[in-house]
Every structure is written in structure tokens, then in C-alpha cells.
């Protein structure tokens, strides 16, 4: 019975983290973007620096009418936001925040699970694009599919480089094997993983599929109210998951300067938020890439680079043994 209680508490912790952390990233995006672009950003809601803006946004979304276009494929259209959001919750289940079992579920093939489930989130956007029966949404959905196909591959190669270096697929196991010299050794893999992850999340500069200035909002054109809010939440949850996986695979997860066992969760969070800051920074700094540039970056740069990283990892691992 205590076992069951532990599991329930862990599941609640995962759900709580899923509810709070993406909102913090969203709030950080409001403020960081405002500062980087030399403007105020939302300043009124909640009096102090507009801290309640996200709450106000949430209330606004909850009050809006839920419009399903007459031409849409109703059931798929209504299901899509859930398919986009829930997979990121599932990935958080296997992300360790500290040593000695400070993870909701220490899954043997955890890395494999995380990558597979993360890919499902993209299906939600494709479903939305197809079922809306809207030309912009269809174009956006097609672009989402194209992007998934090009960037999933380097992402998988880079992740398996970390698995090769550690000799295990368990995410906790990978952090346990981690040493500081992984940073230079796996640097290329880490960069490829992060960039490919950004592209999979359709974050700027890879936001071609949702390009609001040309195809309105791509797959989400016809959405409004809470369903649209779920898609937005999925984007921030995706940032959280990507940053958490990058932290665990390449940056040593819970390892910090001292007290790894007690403060592991803190080091993990610090690294995750530092990476989330980079995600926002990149959004502010780079213009959107064109579709052919996206494909070129994936196939001409990221795939060969990740293959080179695999060769390097394998050679070092076998020759050093």
C-alpha cells in the first residue's frame, strides 16, 4: 500500500510540474521578449509588472465561444488539442530530477519512450491542420508533417549518441554515467538535439508551419477559446520537455557544484530554465526560415553532423575501453 501511495504522490507531482512550469516559461517569455525588444510588455494585470497577465489570458480563453466550423471533421477537430498536449505530460513521467530514484518512473528504455511519445504531440497539430478543412490550416499541417519528418532523424541520432556514451537507455542511468568531459565530447550532439527539438516544436526561427503573417496561424487558424489555449500550452510544455531532455542527456541533469542528492531538483530546474531562456532568446534574434531552408538545414547539416557525432562517440567509447 505505501508503494501505491508513493506512486500516487509522484503522479501528482508530475501533474503539478506540468501545470506550473510551462506557465512560468510563458511568463518568462513575456518579460524576456519585452526587455530584449526594448518595450514594456504586459504591465497592468495584477499591478506589479503585469504578473497576472497569464491568469487574465486564461480567464479570457475560458470565456470564449468554442466554434467548430461547419466544414470541419468535428470529432478529429475536437480531439486534436488533447493529442497535442497530453504526450508532453507523459514524457515528464520519465525525466529524473535527482539521484536515487527521484524520478516518477525509472523506465528501462526511458530515452526511447521519451522520443517516441514526444513525436506523438506533433500528430495533434497535423490532425488540427487536416480536420479544419481550411486551406491555411491544411498548408500549415503539411508543413508540420514535413518538419517532423526532417528533424526527427537528427534528433534520434543525437539522442542515441548520448545513449551510446552512457551504455544505457535509462534517463537516470545516463545522468549517473555523465562526467564533465561529456560537454566537449557530446557538444555537437547536444547542439543538434536542441536545434532539431526546436524545429519539432515549431518554435521560431522554425515557425514556418504556424507563420501568422502568411498562413494566419497554420493548423490553429480555426481554433478559438480553450482549445486554442491548449495548443499554446502544448507549445510551452514542449519547451519544458525539450529543455528537460537536453539537460538530462547532455548537461548532466541533477549534477551541480554541491549537494547533488538534496539539491538535485534545483540544479535540474536551473539548467532547464537556462535552456528555456535560450529558446526565447533565439526566438527574438532570428528571422523565420523559409521551407526550403528548413529542409536544407536538416538534411545538409544536422543529419551529417549527428552521424559524425555517432562516429566520434563510438570510436572514443571503444578505444578508451
Amino acid at each position: 500500500m505505501p508503494d501505491l501511495l508513493v506512486i500516487v504522490l509522484k503522479l501528482l507531482a508530475v501533474a503539478a510540474g506540468f501545470a506550473v512550469l510551462p506557465l512560468l516559461i510563458g511568463q518568462a517569455e513575456h518579460k524576456v521578449m519585452a526587455h530584449m525588444q526594448g518595450r514594456l510588455g504586459p504591465m497592468y494585470a495584477g499591478a506589479f509588472h503585469g504578473w497576472a497577465q497569464l491568469v487574465a489570458d486564461g480567464v479570457k480563453f475560458a470565456q470564449k465561444e468554442d466554434v467548430v466550423p461547419a466544414a470541419a471533421d468535428r470529432r478529429i477537430f475536437k480531439l486534436a488539442p488533447g493529442v497535442a498536449l497530453v504526450p508532453y505530460l507523459l514524457v515528464l513521467l520519465v525525466v529524473p530530477v535527482g539521484p536515487h530514484g527521484q524520478v516518477a518512473l525509472d523506465l528501462g528504455p526511458g530515452l526511447f519512450f521519451a522520443l517516441a511519445v514526444m513525436g506523438v504531440g506533433v500528430i495533434g497539430a497535423i490532425m488540427a491542420g487536416w480536420s479544419s478543412a481550411n486551406k491555411y490550416a491544411l498548408l500549415g499541417g503539411m508543413r508540420v508533417a514535413a518538419q517532423l519528418m526532417s528533424y526527427e532523424l537528427p534528433m534520434v541520432f543525437a539522442a542515441s549518441s548520448a545513449a551510446m556514451a552512457a551504455g544505457t537507455l535509462s534517463l537516470s542511468g545516463i545522468v549517473e554515467e555523465w562526467h564533465w568531459w561529456w560537454l566537449p565530447w557530446q557538444a555537437v550532439g547536444a547542439a543538434v538535439f536542441f536545434v532539431a527539438g526546436l524545429a519539432e516544436l515549431r518554435r521560431p526561427p522554425f515557425d514556418m508551419p504556424v507563420a501568422d503573417s502568411e498562413i494566419i496561424f497554420g493548423p490553429y487558424t480555426e481554433y478559438g477559446g480553450l482549445r486554442f489555449a491548449f495548443f499554446l500550452l502544448a507549445e510551452y510544455a514542449g519547451i519544458l520537455v525539450l529543455c528537460a531532455l537536453t539537460t538530462v542527456l547532455f548537461l548532466g541533469g541533477w549534477r551541480g557544484p554541491f549537494l547533488d542528492t538534496e539539491l538535485g531538483w534545483l540544479w535540474t530546474l536551473v539548467k532547464v530554465f537556462a535552456l528555456a531562456f535560450v529558446v526565447i532568446w533565439v526566438r527574438v534574434s532570428y528571422p523565420r526560415m523559409r521551407e526550403d531552408q528548413l529542409q536544407r538545414l536538416a538534411w545538409a547539416w544536422l543529419v551529417p553532423l549527428s552521424l559524425a557525432q555517432l562516429a566520434l562517440t563510438g570510436a572514443v567509447r571503444v578505444l578508451a575501453a
Binding site: 528504455p109 542515441s160 544505457t168 555517432l310 563510438g314 571503444v318 575501453a321
Partner: peptide, 14 residues
Amino acid sequence: AVFLFPWATVFAAP
């Protein structure tokens, strides 16, 4: 790429 994952866990075994 799928075959990489099981292989990655054992390839450096003595």
C-alpha cells in the same frame, strides 16, 4: 535508426 538503440547499450561491452 531504431536499431541503434538496443545496439547502443551493449556495443562497448568487454
